[in-house]
Simulated scan of single mutants.
Amino acid sequence: MNTTPALKVAVMGAGAVGCYYGGMLARAGHPVTLIGRPAHVQAVRAQGLRMQTQSFDERVPLTASTEASAVAGADLVLFSVKSPDTQAGGEQMRPHLAPGALVLCLQNGVDNAERLRTVLPGHEVAAAVVYVATEMAGPGHLRHHGRGELVIEPSARSAQVMQALTAAGVPTEISDNVRGALWAKLILNCAYNGLSAVGRIVYGELVQRPGVTDLMRDVVAECQAVAAADGVSIPGDVAAAVRRIAETMPTQYSSTAQDLMRGKPSEIDHLNGYVVQKGQALGVPTPANRALWVMVKLAENAPRA
């Protein structure tokens, strides 16, 4: 029996990541409101959120809205808009955020919490590192391919949020080195996202293609050199973590690949593009990351068949 006190939760940007964590909390009894696109909201209102995961396939009832004002009264906001929309999403929420609410950034990239704080002065914002393979299979339909753990930044409510997430089946830890953990996740994204997008291929098949693991090794080495020049301490065995992605998420397309296949702009400027930009500023060459960044930008703008 779950004895964790209920948190009122809002998910700002209810895509695949936000729906997974919001859905897990709703399934554990927390009142959750998803804020997303009209077709998705209509489907959730009509039939709940279908969570098709590795361990269950259920329709989870929760509230849904298209308006940022639906964050009003939330104790916890799971902020999962795309990285280019971080500041605009924060500005939309700002008039409606409750005092004392925690805004938890569940986003790709390493600087989203920092950028969000600039538009939410006086509100508590914490970064999180997200390790989950998931996609939207259609409006109101989430498909989970693996993992799901979170690493979150210390804050006044982090312990309470960690307790709620853990009780909901989401392995969660609080870390004093979230910056390093975010860089570790950035490196994984830089290794896989662009290649999965250019090849339109899932991770398990991607690493079997000739030359791919060698190119990944070059990308990772550049990222590590940039991080070191920026004074970032990256935890864990990075090479082992890169290998583990294909092993634990073999059927996953990267979020960048999913964006391109749907004709949407990607977050590549905040992944390989961020490493290129940082490398330029710090005098560290990044040719492999630059090549992937350019290829994805070309693919974004290519005419659709």
Rank of each mutant, 00 (worst) to 15 (best):
Q208E: 11
G279E: 10
T166R: 04
P265L: 00
A64F: 07
Q92I: 04
A28C: 00
V132D: 06
Q87A: 08
L292S: 11
Q280W: 13
G211S: 08
I174V: 14
P61I: 07
A128F: 11
A137T: 06
H145Y: 10
Y131W: 15
V212L: 00
L292T: 15
G279K: 00
G236V: 09
E124I: 03
R94T: 04
G48K: 08
C105M: 10
P31K: 04
D111R: 04
L206F: 02
Y21V: 04
N189R: 14
A246P: 08
A299F: 09
Y192D: 03
T3L: 02
N112H: 07
L298I: 13
D111E: 09
Y274C: 15
A128H: 11
H30R: 05
L150A: 05
G263F: 06
W293H: 03
A184Q: 13
A257E: 00
V178E: 08
S80C: 12
G194R: 04
C105P: 02
A221M: 12
D75G: 06
G109W: 03
A225S: 00
Q52A: 08
Y274T: 10
Q163F: 10
V219I: 11
L271G: 01
E300L: 11
R217C: 04
P61G: 07
Q258E: 06
M162G: 06
A43Q: 06
V71R: 09
G148A: 11
V9G: 04
Y192C: 05
E153L: 07
A14M: 12
E153R: 05
R143T: 10
T251A: 14
Q252H: 11
Q52G: 03
G140N: 07
Q252G: 00
C105E: 12
P95A: 07
P287D: 12
L282P: 01
I201S: 02
A70W: 00
A126K: 00
I187K: 15
R243C: 01
Q160Y: 13
V71Q: 12
V32M: 07
M24I: 08
L78N: 10
N193A: 14
S196M: 10
Q52L: 05
P84L: 02
M295A: 15
L292D: 02
Y192I: 04
A101D: 05
L97A: 13
A88H: 03
D176E: 15
L215E: 03
D237P: 00
R262M: 15
Q252P: 00
V77K: 09
A305C: 05
G48P: 00
C223T: 02
V294A: 15
P5C: 03
A159S: 02
A197C: 07
N108W: 12
A68P: 10
L165C: 14
E173N: 12
V170P: 13
P5T: 10
I268V: 11
D269R: 14
A101H: 05
G18A: 10
G140V: 08
A257Y: 01
A156S: 09
A159Q: 12
A191Y: 05
V238P: 03
P235F: 09
R37M: 13
Y253K: 14
T134K: 02
Q160N: 01
C190P: 03
R209T: 14
G138Q: 01
T63P: 02
T66L: 08
